[in-house]
Design a protein around this nucleic acid. Structure first.
Length: 752
DNA sequence: TACTGGATTATTTTT
DNA sequence: TAATCCAGTA
């Protein structure tokens, strides 16, 4: 049987068209992954195309993994040589081979958002920019936008107008220079540098064009300009490009996604074959009608209308409660009831919300009701402090070239190495073109004899010890060793006993990942592990099989489906968000509406929409109107929408909440951040005022055994006086207050 | 050098 | 509310 026979006629058309440009407009739940996988199988098994010539690009590792698995099942052999990967890992693979052409070392590190932030902080400090007024986030956002649009600092310089723009260009340039010095690329660089590579070295591009004869891109509506260009270049020679997406599910504009990529596909490829998949295999007709009706309020979209053979199904249920506590309780109660009545398993339920902060109440109520749940997203696993610490150790051991990693752990757990010492080493490194770790190695030369240099030397030998062991022990043992020798657990216990256990659990989870990584590969190296880890996200790790209620944001829910979906917090100001309501750009509301469409279409059988009359947002209680999106659902599809919650339906069926007390959308005059001129005294480096500091640490006139008095602790006996990096550290055994350690300059001890 | 508390400030985030 | 950041203090 042909793999095409498993598809409906539209799907067949899409899967069977393998030559030339193809745009598949795949509505939610229309089986696009099925089309992509069967298409690939068809290419290999029936059209005789070599798997080696196929490239399939997705956005998440999870999607890539699923796709490969499904292709494997369809194709007997050879599927392993298909290149199925995310945009970012595709680019990493290419860059590892050719990045030297761009002046980077092939073992570059990948900076995540936190790393970028830390780096930006450094840059801004050097330029003496007031981060209160111009937070690093603002620069990073703007740089990210530039990179997504493939604009280099030089391109931006040409466009720059006015002081603020010039400052931005300066910061952008310096940020790039710092990245390069650290031999690091941030996420956006991965794409942009690959495009740069391809444009500057056509022979490299051609090499890949000859390999990737057939290209497929999933979630095409979420591509940004850089990704679009990457694909365009790769497909330029053969034009066998098939993109799949749904413009109605474009919800990442704020991250640079350009909805025009999908809307204008036919302009870029005039002979493109366009196929719409509108038959939905997921939801009931009621749910689809609601989704259709909400999304039809958007202009500029490719008109689609989802339909199903599944039948009408249940009406959508609207729940309106007094406050957010009641809302959470009501949702949890309903899930409990359904489960008790045997109507569902926990895993059949998902609660979706607009902001991560909303998960808290739901979690609390779940705990109270004793039902298992999993929160997806929020703080990314790999951005937890303890995980970052361990990874920083691993990065330092791996190559020590990542200054940020070294600086992160040089005093974690505390080893008495302070900001002054670190600053001196970093300054020396900057002045002499050395990496931070190299400076640590020659600390004594830089700092001179003393306690500070000794402490650094201790740290360096610790790292050296780990390095020397690296080739003899497994990564798992290495992490155990790190934990052991640094007394990491002890540090956690001391700093916060309450959550130490949870943090250790997380580290345990990291070790699990290491173990499974080591099992997966024949020769697992530390570098490979660090690379893999740099490119995974939270959603990649959701386990659908665990019997848990899923709590997540609407964004995280894209691509997933659940029998019962709860859309919580459907209030104007929360969803659509306050920012988009106030914006004078109507496309912002449209993006929120698409998000709503995504939410609705996650539901297979039952959709429950809820709102609260008042809720606490950022520490103050707000009363907001029911979301305008709820009102866009026709009456006949929804029940319980009249205000007054559980009361029976009102005669007029009006949705506009006449009873509601002041639908206050907070009239806070939060001024839009408009580019303002900078106030920066922009001299690159502050002069180092070394002399004065040392003078302040005068030798105390007391020594061990002397009696001294302290203004607060009274009389005591000096135990020891030690010279620190900056000041003398004095231990005193006070008669009444016990033993205290303090600094001579602060303690103002008087000899008696 | 290290800790604390007071001020500050908040969407969404596939990599 | 809650998390994070920095200045002041010992």
């Amino acid at each position: 049987m042909s793999v095409l026979e498993m598809l409906n006629s539209k799907q067949q058309e899409a899967a069977g068209q393998i030559e030339g440009p193809v745009l598949i407009l795949a509505g939610a739940g229309s089986g696009k992954t099925r089309v992509l996988t069967n298409r690939t199988a068809y290419m290999i098994d029936e059209a005789g195309i070599s798997p080696w010539n196929i490239l399939a690009i997705t956005f998440t590792n999870k999607a890539a993994g699923e796709m490969r698995e499904r292709i494997d099942r369809l194709v007997g052999h050879g599927s392993e040589s298909i290149w199925v990967a995310t945009f970012h890992s595709t680019c990493v693979r290419i860059l590892r081979r050719h990045v030297d052409l761009l002046g980077y070392d092939s073992n570059f590190t990948i900076y995540d958002t936190d790393d970028s932030k830390a780096l930006m902080k450094d840059v801004l400090k050097r330029f003496q920019v007031d981060t209160k007024q111009y937070p690093e986030k603002m620069f990073l956002n703007r740089i990210s936008n530039s990179k997504n649009e493939l604009l280099t600092p030089e391109d931006e310089a040409k466009e720059a107008f006015g002081y603020a723009d010039e400052q931005f260009v300066k910061v952008y340039r310096e940020y790039q220079a710092s990245l390069k010095k650290n031999n690091a690329l941030d996420f956006d660089d991965l794409i942009m540098k690959t495009v740069e590579l391809f444009t500057q070295f056509p022979e490299v591009l051609e090499n890949y064009q000859n390999r990737f004869l057939y290209i497929m891109v999933d979630e095409y509506q979420d591509t940004n300009t850089a990704q679009f260009e990457l694909i365009r270049l790769l497909a330029d020679k053969n034009k066998n490009i098939c993109v799949v997406g749904d413009d109605d599910q474009s919800i990442y504009k704020f991250r640079g996604a350009n909805i025009r990529n999908i809307l204008d596909f036919e302009k870029v490829y005039p002979n493109a074959k366009v196929i719409k998949l509108e038959q939905n295999y997921r939801s009931t007709q009621t749910i689809l009608d609601a989704a259709n009706s909400v999304i039809s309020n958007n202009t500029s979209r490719k008109v689609k209308s989802l339909w199903t053979e599944r039948g009408q199904g249940e009406k959508i249920r609207f729940l309106y409660t007094e406050n957010a506590y009641d809302e959470a309780e009501l949702i949890v109660d309903r899930i409990c009831r359904d489960k008790r009545e045997g109507k569902c398993e926990y895993r059949d339920n998902a609660v979706l919300y607009r902001t991560n902060a909303q998960s808290r109440l739901l979690e609390e109520k779940c705990i109270m009701a004793g039902i298992p749940y999993a929160v997806v997203g929020g703080v990314n696993f790999y951005s937890r402090k303890e995980i970052k610490d361990i990874l920083a150790y691993l990065k330092t051991i791996d190559n020590g070239k990542d200054d940020l990693a070294v600086r992160r752990i040089i005093n974690v757990p505390k080893r008495g190495i302070g900001a002054t010492t670190i600053g001196k080493l970093a300054d020396y490194g900057a002045a002499n073109g050395l990496g931070f770790y190299e400076c640590c190695v020659k600390a004594e030369e830089i700092l001179g004899h003393g306690k500070a240099a000794d402490k650094i030397a201790e740290f360096v030998s610790l790292i050296a010890l780990f390095k020397s062991k690296l080739e003899f022990i497994s990564l798992e043992q290495l992490v155990d060793d790190i934990l052991d020798r640094t007394d990491y657990e002890e540090m956690l216990n001391e700093s916060d006993p309450d959550d130490a256990a949870e943090r250790m659990d997380n580290i345990g989870e990291l070790i699990n990942k290491i173990v499974s990584f080591e099992e997966q590969y024949d020769e697992p190296t530390l570098s490979d592990f660090l690379e893999e880890v740099a490119l995974v996200s939270d959603i990649d790790n959701v386990d659908e099989n665990a019997d848990k209620v899923m709590l997540m944001t609407l964004h995280s829910a894209k691509g997933l489906e659940f029998p019962n979906v709860y859309l919580a917090g459907m209030e104007d100001g929360l969803f659509p968000g306050y920012m988009s309501i106030c914006s004078d750009d109507p496309s912002e509301i449209e993006e929120e509406r698409r998000l709503c469409y995504v939410g609705i279409t996650r539901a297979m059988n039952k959709l429950i929409i809820s709102a609260a009359r008042s809720r606490m947002i950022r520490g103050e209680t707000q009363c907001n109107a029911v979301s305008r999106f709820v009102k866009e659902i026709p009456d006949e599809l929804i029940e319980g929408r009249t205000p007054g919650a559980s009361a029976s339906r009102r005669s007029d069926g009006d949705v506009s909440n006449s009873k509601q007390p002041r639908p206050v959308v907070k009239p806070v005059a939060r001024p839009k951040t408009v580019a303002k001129p900078f106030i920066a005294r922009a001299t690159a480096f502050t002069d180092l005022k070394k002399g004065s500091d040392i003078a302040s640490a005068a030798t105390p006139d007391y020594g061990p055994g002397d009696r001294v008095s302290h203004m607060k602790f009274g009389a005591g006996t000096v135990i020891s006086v030690e010279k620190g990096a900056r000041d003398y550290e004095v231990s005193v055994d006070f008669d009444t207050a016990g033993t205290k350690k303090m600094f001579a300059a602060f303690a103002k001890l008087k000899k008696i």
